[in-house]
Design a protein around this nucleic acid. Structure first.
Lengths: 232, 232
DNA sequence: TGTTTTCTGGAACTTTTGTTGGATTAAGCG
DNA sequence: CGCTTAATCCAACAAAAGTTCCAGAAAACA
């Protein structure tokens, strides 16, 4: 395996022996594009490390609307909460593309944490970090308008979703963006149009580029459209 | 101190010696009603245990709207995230009533966790639990209408906010409810009126009681008003 | 290549939420 | 007790978000 385990926060700083133990405790799973990895509410599926492909974490409400909590690429981890407390999975996971993951069961993870102190304290730090992300996300949902959330997506998620939504073009469909923002396709379309003819985004062919980073930042921070500034 | 430390998840299962160490590491602080405990974004204020009084955890957006993340009574803990990672406080905290708290600094907490393994693994579990709460809260904000959130507040928070909002009457003002739900006072008033004349709540004098628990549950789960059922 | 499917654009409309302002009622206090 | 302050009620309106519907454009694929 050509994986650098040190880039995974949970495994950082472990000695080679501990790392081996962890790898031995995990099972590799392969998923076809579109396959369900696990469902919300089901018994704890364990700790996952994405090895290959793209994984979507989401929730769905009674009316069938989706909320994509994250889109994960290789070396991301997920379901740590259930893996740690042994409770039901807090969300659904599907393989967007063909994907591969390392899975460590709840029991084994507990054993590993008991044996490897570094793993335990890394986990504390990682969970604290996760917590911050959720607090942030929560405030986005309570305080930000959809154009503002969209601006933030373009600005700050350009790293996270690397080549899906870039500095530059979106590979995400409006439907997918809607699920990430927690709204519907049409609303995203409207917001996108809004940002386009406010001059914050620009379209070249199919792709949408950032035209005015400052303006996007203003929108993301204040929830209000920036004064229309002449293009030059 | 007549406190049962075992009721605090972080300190459960610690031997007397470890407990003593923890108590020795903490400082007691006293706050007057209305006093700021710490602010969002400021350098890590440490780990807090409420000893007496009521503490409000909240965020505020650019326009000055409040979102109350929680109202905490004695033996609750807060700011664990910053206390663990040493980063800035993720929210504001104020004493609602006169209050008292035990505070353990980031450094000392790290030392304690290094020395007391039980504290470390309790912390992992507690952070996982916190995470679940935030995920839940996030979905409330993305999927639920305000009447639905209000119903949920009456149903499930009656324990948490014990005598503020009971099975029975509300001591919380509409303003305060609004901050908890992430909306404005007028909207809460409207929603309250809605629940009242749908027969889900009942008013006796100043106080609001639950009249139809089933109906509230239906509303909380499906986001739709239950069919009006004759009262008997 | 033509055909089917998926994605996008956009209008018209509904519902929900947020805002403003004034009238009424209750609570706190000297 | 009267006065002041805080909380509530309610209506009317504005703005944002969600819905419905359909027409085009682009991609996928056979």
């Amino acid at each position: 395996m050509g994986i650098d385990w040190n880039t995974i926060p949970y495994f950082r700083g472990l000695d080679p022996c501990g790392l081996k133990r962890i790898q031995a405790a995990g099972r590799q799973h392969v998923y076809q594009a579109g396959a369900t990895i696990f469902n919300e509410g089901e018994a704890c599926a364990g700790f996952y490390v994405v090895l290959d492909g793209l994984v979507r974490i989401y929730r769905m409400n009674a009316e069938g609307r989706l909320h994509t909590l994250s889109l994960l690429r290789p070396l991301s981890t997920f379901n740590e909460v259930a893996a740690v407390d042994g409770g039901p999975n807090p969300f659904n996971a599907v393989a967007v593309t063909n994907a591969e993951a390392l899975v460590i069961s709840h029991d084994r993870l507990l054993n590993l944490m008991a044996a490897e102190r570094v793993l335990l304290s890394n986990t504390v730090q990682a969970l604290a970090h996760l917590n911050r992300e959720y607090i942030e996300r929560l405030e986005d949902m309570t305080f930000r308008s959809i154009p503002s959330r969209l601006a933030k997506l373009f600005l700050y998620e350009s790293t996270a979703y690397a080549d899906q939504i870039a500095e530059a073009p979106t590979q995400l469909t409006q439907e997918e963006i809607a699920a990430v923002l927690g709204t519907t396709r049409e609303v995203v379309g409207r917001a996108l149009r809004g940002l386009l003819n406010a001059g914050l985004l620009k379209k070249r062919g199919r792709h949408v580029y950032i035209a005015d980073r400052r303006g996007l930042e203003w929108l993301a921070e204040t929830n209000t459209m920036p004064e229309r500034v002449p293009n030059r």
